[in-house]
Design a protein around this nucleic acid. Structure first.
Length: 240
DNA sequence: AACTATCGCAACCGCGCGGAT
DNA sequence: GATCCGCGCGGTTGCGATAGT
């Protein structure tokens, strides 16, 4: 693809946060001209009297000003759908957004990165593959990065407060079985024997707090989790 | 009360796709 | 077929709000 001009190279175009006045102009324009048809986004700033590039106008409209947008917290059903769809589609945020009326790809992407992803990592689940981290790989990478940086970036970036130094903290990464080996929480939740969780849907119920209905407590390993309790597992994270 | 760290969201950037010429 | 052009997507950054010290 050759010769495309940068979108925002015109001198004098505004950047950064939109003002109420700019929002009003854009909304007025789209109300009078219709949200589609008879114009292209590149023309919108001129037609609406805005000192913005067309791309910025489109983004503002689709992510913030659209009347059908749903604001506020994600519901349990929405979280489940996001995790489910992400397992199928990966980072195709627009595709995922298409299945969640009123949510934008940006919304979902932000929510994933700031809430869901971190929690999955804390639980020992790779958010990219939706599978347990390969413990050997983790250990290997840990060795490498420790050699390079003298610190463990995974724990530095993603570990819950107190997980490394506070022995009193509920800490999944320190769970050990009878042999002293570390147990990845997801590994037994995914086990089919003994009533562990076996689907993304069940994971969602776990994440949103509905543990008892999603997983049988008959598993001995599950009992280990049961002893930790809701707070220890940091499952309240999706309540906020 | 002041300072620092962390979080969460809005917005920007660069690239690829696909239709038009 | 080559090029142009607009749009949409995914990744990243900036910054205000809030929490912690």
């Amino acid at each position: 693809m050759g010769g495309r001009k940068p979108c925002c190279d015109e001198v004098g175009l505004r950047k950064g946060p939109w003002t109420a006045d700019e929002d009003g102009k854009l909304v007025d324009f789209l109300r009078t001209r219709g949200a589609s048809g008879g114009w292209c986004w590149r023309d919108v700033p001129k037609l609406a009297g805005l000192k913005r590039c067309g791309k910025s106008c489109r983004l503002r409209w689709t992510n913030y000003l659209r009347p059908d947008l749903k604001r506020g917290l994600f519901s349990e059903e929405e979280i489940q759908l996001v995790i489910d769809l992400h397992a199928q589609l990966g980072n195709r945020w627009s595709k995922i957004a298409a299945e969640l009326p009123g949510r934008t790809d940006n919304d979902i992407k932000n929510y994933w990165n700031t809430h869901i992803k971190r929690k999955l990592i804390r639980m020992g689940i790779d958010p990219n593959t939706h599978s347990p981290f390969d413990q050997q790989k983790v250990n290997h990478e840990k060795e490498e990065t420790t050699l390079v940086n003298g610190q463990d970036p995974l724990h530095q970036a993603e570990a819950p407060v107190g997980s490394q130094n506070d022995p009193s903290a509920g800490n999944l990464t320190h769970l050990a079985d009878a042999d002293g080996d570390n147990i990845q929480p997801w590994s037994f939740l995914m086990e089919n024997n003994g009533g562990g969780c076996s689907s993304v849907g069940e994971l969602t119920m776990l994440l949103s707090g509905d543990i008892t209905s999603s997983c049988s407590s008959s598993s001995s390993l599950w009992l280990k989790y049961g002893e930790l309790g809701y707070e220890d597992l940091e499952l309240g994270c999706f309540d906020d």
